[in-house]
Design a binder for these strands. Structure first.
Length: 280
DNA sequence: CGGGACGCCTGTGAGC
DNA sequence: TGCTCACAGGCGTCCC
């Protein structure tokens, strides 16, 4: 569900409000993917710092409690899973059936709504320590990291024998593209999702990197994709789903050549592509 | 070690 | 109308 654009849109819509606010307390709903890992009462009295994002994880730094030293600080690592969204408002109203975490602060309540409960909220002393570090190590490059160059991207694909679509989804070369954006980026690059990653020429790898970036960046501009659940923290949906060239368009004409869009399954996930416009 | 399948959980839409 | 089934934006874990 929420892929990088949706998570980043969420981050942007909560960061300013939360920055410098003080936590009153937290409320837990049904269990999420993992336990919080601390007593929710231990969150009270902390000051929220600058919300950041790594891949599809959000990090809410929380300062030490009153009268404690710096080593009392920590933060919440949050993931939206497949169906999660965060809301932030002064008066969120009573928690609904799918509202599984509230962080009540002086600036308003941050509420995680997640019907499928694949999402997570985890306390960690820092990003560099477990449990956060365990989840973040091994992640690929941030798509907009300037250190990720066409050359390094091409080099990272070289040892991968598997299909390029699976490599994009795995997130260990480049993070952020989930099923929608991986399909869309491959379409924009004119690359067959079944092509072995290792077989991509340097120019094609360069084209793909550029397509991943332009696809994610366009999605960010229009607020992400809302297929069903996604909302930003102000309750606004995204618009990118209306611009999808292939995703969810099985049997409909390709926007470029008119051939029917194909749907196949790769690694248990649906892949949409145009057989004519996308080549191995 | 890379790669693929599984399972977590709930809601929705299609088909009967 | 009501049931059953397939499927859904992610990802850690397990097994080969």
């Amino acid at each position: 569900m929420p892929e990088l654009p949706e998570v980043e849109v969420t981050r942007r819509t909560i960061a300013a409000g939360l920055r410098g606010s003080r936590v009153f307390g937290a409320r837990l709903g049904k269990p999420l993917r993992w336990a919080l890992g601390c007593d929710p009462a231990a969150l009270a009295g902390r000051t929220v710092g600058e919300v950041s994002r790594r891949a599809k994880y959000l990090w809410l730094p929380l300062g030490p409690r009153e009268g404690r030293t710096a080593d009392d600080a920590g933060g919440l690592l949050m993931h939206l899973g497949m169906s999660g969204s965060l809301g932030f408002s002064a008066d969120p109203g009573p928690a609904g059936n799918h509202d599984h975490f509230d962080l009540v602060t002086t600036a308003g309540t941050l509420r995680l709504r997640d019907p499928r409960r694949f999402g997570a909220v985890i306390w960690s002393a820092s990003l560099d320590e477990a449990p956060a570090s365990r989840l973040l190590t091994g992640l690929g490059a941030e798509p907009f990291d300037p250190a990720l160059t066409p050359l390094s991207f091409h080099a990272a694909l070289k040892p991968r024998r598997t299909a390029i679509k699976s490599v994009l989804l795995s997130g260990d070369v480049i993070v952020g593209a989930g099923n929608i954006y991986a399909c869309e980026a491959l379409f924009r690059a004119g690359i067959d999702p079944r092509a072995r990653a290792a077989t991509l020429s340097r120019p094609r790898a360069e084209r793909l990197l550029s397509s991943v970036r332009s696809t994610l960046s366009r999605a960010l501009d229009v607020g992400g994709s809302t297929l069903r659940d996604f909302r930003d923290a102000h309750g606004m949906g995204g618009e990118f789903q209306h611009e999808a060239a292939v995703y969810g368009r099985e049997d409909q004409p390709c926007v470029q050549c008119g051939a029917p869009v194909r749907r196949i399954v790769q690694g248990q996930r649906a892949t949409y592509f145009c057989r004519v416009c996308q080549r191995r």
